[in-house]
Write a protein that binds this DNA or RNA. Sequence first.
DNA 1: ATGTAATTATAGTCAGAGAAAGTCAAATTT
DNA 2: AAATTTGACTTTCTCTGACTATAATTACAT
Lengths: 155, 155
Amino acid sequence: MSPSISNQITQMLLDMLDRDGTTEIRRNDLAQSLGCVPSQINYVISSRFTPERGYIVESRRGGGGYVKITRVSLDFPTAIMHAVNSVGSEIDPLAARSCIMNLLSRGVIEQNGARLIAAAVDENALRPVPYEYRDTVRASILKQMLLAYSQNRKG
Amino acid sequence: MSPSISNQITQMLLDMLDRDGTTEIRRNDLAQSLGCVPSQINYVISSRFTPERGYIVESRRGGGGYVKITRVSLDFPTAIMHAVNSVGSEIDPLAARSCIMNLLSRGVIEQNGARLIAAAVDENALRPVPYEYRDTVRASILKQMLLAYSQNRKG
DNA sequence: ATGTAATTATAGTCAGAGAAAGTCAAATTT
DNA sequence: AAATTTGACTTTCTCTGACTATAATTACAT
């Protein structure tokens, strides 16, 4: 893991979330204590704690304001369907990765499956497809695989 | 073994890999320290650390970016490596299917894995890719997935 | 005491600068 | 001819700060 500030913030938030699945912060304080500008917290949240990835974020401005992050969890079929539906007709490498990681971290899919799916939709595997089609192909493969995955086992 | 810069880079990466099978570099730093242009690192990676030779490469751009190379474990079934090498640069749906079935029937891969791989290289998933590229893409994906599979525990 | 205005305390947005890595094809070496 | 070397250009990800939006609190007038 790279030592970028964004990654530190991410890690810190994940640690807090690991305790009870929810965390509430004061944006400015956190930024202060990490030595970055407040808006970077927003950047991290919007690039990593997305609904796609299984988080809901609420906030409030003004005096006594806060930012609250909650990790949501769904049952297997619902989670898979949700994921499939969220994919759309195109998906870029980062979003695909997020989608897979999200399912993995929530225990919807397993490490082995995640690896296979990740390998299939990786930019590396898709190199031979013309750039303009890549995200469309990625979406197609991802959806097919998730569907196939849901056939896989014990519900 | 000429002392070309590419060979030096290769050797350095191999040395790093010998420690724990994985290595993460900052492309620009490495290029700097070896006195070559950054893009030469890409050349080395794409010419020597290929899936056929048993390497998985991941990377990230932007601040805190990196290039990570992983060598699949030395004790993984040679059968998989054989399969990867037998695939070539193109493969049609039928051949792909029989490749997968073959590995499955020999117990090299499992039902679940076979299903995922089959889904990914299926004509259905690849529909969005122009016909002329399909078999090439299929080959690329298949190889990447088999390689990823060989990373799975209890293989 | 009550309603309104001013002030203060937060958080959000966005565009631009900065930091890596990737691509491609021409030039060079082997 | 094939492999290597190079650098100009592209794409992606991160960081920053000026500006905006909203909520709570305080001040003030009635």
